[in-house]
Design a protein around this nucleic acid. Sequence first.
DNA 1: CGTCAGGTTGAGCAGGTTCAAATCCAGTGG
DNA 2: CCACTGGATTTGAACCTGCTCAACCTGACG
Lengths: 227, 227
Amino acid sequence: MGVPSKTSPEVNRALAHSERPFSLPTWAEIVAAAPRAYDRDVEIFGQQEPADCLYKVVSGAVRTCSVLRDGRRHIAGFYLAGDFFGFEADNRHALSAEAICSSEILVIKRSVLTVLAEHDKDIARRLRHMMNGELGRTQAYVTRLIKTSCERVASFLLEMAERSPTVDEIELPMSRQEIGDHLGLTLETVSRTFSKFEALAAIQIERPNARNVTLRNRAALQRISTC
Amino acid sequence: MGVPSKTSPEVNRALAHSERPFSLPTWAEIVAAAPRAYDRDVEIFGQQEPADCLYKVVSGAVRTCSVLRDGRRHIAGFYLAGDFFGFEADNRHALSAEAICSSEILVIKRSVLTVLAEHDKDIARRLRHMMNGELGRTQAYVTRLIKTSCERVASFLLEMAERSPTVDEIELPMSRQEIGDHLGLTLETVSRTFSKFEALAAIQIERPNARNVTLRNRAALQRISTC
DNA sequence: CGTCAGGTTGAGCAGGTTCAAATCCAGTGG
DNA sequence: CCACTGGATTTGAACCTGCTCAACCTGACG
């Protein structure tokens, strides 16, 4: 586990500066690096691959998912612009990650972060904070999954609105199928539930692009989601 | 955030030793402290309480859960002897924790761990590892929840067997109702599924105490759980 | 002995799935 | 410009899994 023994070039470069502590890259410098572009449905990392990087969505959207033996796909999470993903329990990715639409992704070597975190409490704190956030969101997601279809969809819409840049107008980057694979529902049930909410005047689906949704009655959605 | 400003007595005691580095408590010493006893169904911590401690099950079993507004209970996780619990995203507990049966619980001040982790890489590593494990188990749990009742129960049994001290004989500390609240099923469905697995000779329920289960055909359970 | 909690089993119901068809739109090529 | 194609969405109808309500059984305990 000794740092000097098996280190990547990146770490050595970082360590080379450690006698001049103020020249170690800061967090701001790290996230200002050049992102990579991924087209729609292109894999960013695969299941079982070594988990040696952390990722940030600069623009676009990403899904993390696992495919079951019978072909069913489970989407564990969606990541929008500004979100970090790639946290894993193991040294290998339990999930794969794919771009939902054309996206720019910042890739950060985990080994670099580990070394930096030891010298920079700010970075260590940010890492812990992101990890905590991931755990919290996963727990909230779990609570969502034990509920009925209406509750799942309502609470999904509220979360997406929460994470959207705009207040009440959401631009969903993902299809009904993807929402279904995330919520444990079929695409038909998702579509029907959307229609039902629209009939209740809780949302409005801005056609022709059915992925633009406006929240019309947040209180109603909250009542549905928690009840 | 400065350490000297707002510190608990425990931290001050720990810091008092910091000039004699080898007298800082080690991990082994921390987990050797005296546990507290909790009777069945007694709350260990409640929802919304400040999350300032970490907990270890010395003996017995614990559930973490949240109660929805309509009275439904969601059990987020079970913790058996040797497991740590109380990891939270926020400074406040999103879940409550209760003893499933008479249990001995070790309580560790989070503030102490934070300070120790800064001086002791072993402790820091252990903390990170536990946090990772928690995230990984939560993700596996999520994957379980999107499946059918048979799949959920089968994979639950396999996980419990994995975590049990014995190989194939499991002593479930929790009731059918609690398993249901964990898997998003009713107690009747859990019971029926157990019976079905017994009819398939995949398990044997050792009555009269229906909580003692013997795995008779692991391969069958695996086939059911993953398919 | 009666009571109570936990578990099992049955019958009918309801929410979601499955299968199928219709619609709408974007992109493509004539 | 328009017809054609394919992907995404919506909607309908039949079916099935898991829920609800209910009865019954067993063992523990006052």
